[in-house]
């Protein structure tokens, strides 16, 4: 007889079996621990280059850049205190916001350049359908869709002075702000990154309020058209 027979009841399993089971349990716990971090890491994962967040960050920098330019132009020439302080507010606020958008892309490790303007909004159905191989609109056309002023409109405003220039500025800036709203709304529909969503919400609230202010300034100045 070589194999020791269990004398009474069941014998303890051999030490190596206990060790193997312990190892297996530990490995399983390790794997479950790793899996449990996936969701958090996935949620915290930076938006990709073709994400709505990246598209918003790029297009809004272009959009805000022109608002800063226009506001600085009228700031230099206006005689109206209300328009001057509004211009100061727009130039400083949108400069700061533009810098934040720039930094999102830096932090996410993405290039500042990306796909065509507003292409990221297509999934929201806010942009015009362009299937069937139809050519995309030009940058200038897209910038008009974004509410931006054309080079001719900017030149016309710069050529004016006094209340005429103020009225032109307010008209262009109201349209400019209105162009930002669909972009911010598209991000709210399509985006996930919490800070980007919070900023988009802020853009909608503050630019809507500024549209009201500019509308009343125009009324006060007696602007027509």
């Amino acid at each position: 007889m070589t194999a020791p027979e269990p004398a009474n009841g069941r014998a303890l399993p051999p030490w190596w079996a206990v060790l193997l089971v312990a190892l297996a349990v530990a490995a399983l716990a390790f794997a479950i621990g790793r899996f449990s971090t996936f969701a958090a890491a996935g949620a915290a994962a930076a938006p990709t280059s073709d994400s709505p967040e990246a598209g918003f960050a790029r297009d809004m920098q272009l959009h805000h850049g022109q608002a800063v330019e226009m506001a600085m132009d009228i700031y230099r020439t206006t005689q109206n205190d209300g328009v001057r302080v509004l211009a100061y507010d727009i130039a400083t606020t949108q400069s700061a916001q533009k810098g934040e958008f720039y930094d999102w892309l830096v932090k996410w490790g993405l290039p500042q350049s990306g796909g065509p303007l507003m292409a990221w909004m297509d999934a929201a159905g806010t942009s015009h359908p362009h299937g069937g191989g139809a050519a995309r609109p030009t940058d200038a056309e897209l910038m008009t869709q974004m509410g931006m002023a054309s080079a001719e409109e900017l030149a016309a405003m710069r050529a004016q002075s006094g209340t005429t220039a103020d009225c032109t500025f307010l008209g262009l800036m109201i349209r400019h702000h209105q162009g930002a709203l669909p972009m911010a709304q598209a991000l709210l529909r399509l985006g996930h990154e919490p800070r980007a969503l919070a900023v988009a919400q802020g853009v909608i609230a503050t630019q809507s309020a500024e549209i009201d202010l500019m509308t009343s300034l125009r009324a006060g100045l007696g602007c027509t058209g």
């Binding site: 490995a27 399983l28 794997a31 479950i32 790793r34 996936f38 490790g109 993405l110």
Partner: peptide, 17 residues
């Protein structure tokens, strides 16, 4: 399962503009 927990872990972004 352990291999999957390592292989399918979300990758950090490595591309830097």
């Amino acid at each position: 399962v352990v291999a999957a927990s390592i292989a399918f872990a979300p990758k950090p972004v490595t591309y830097q503009a």
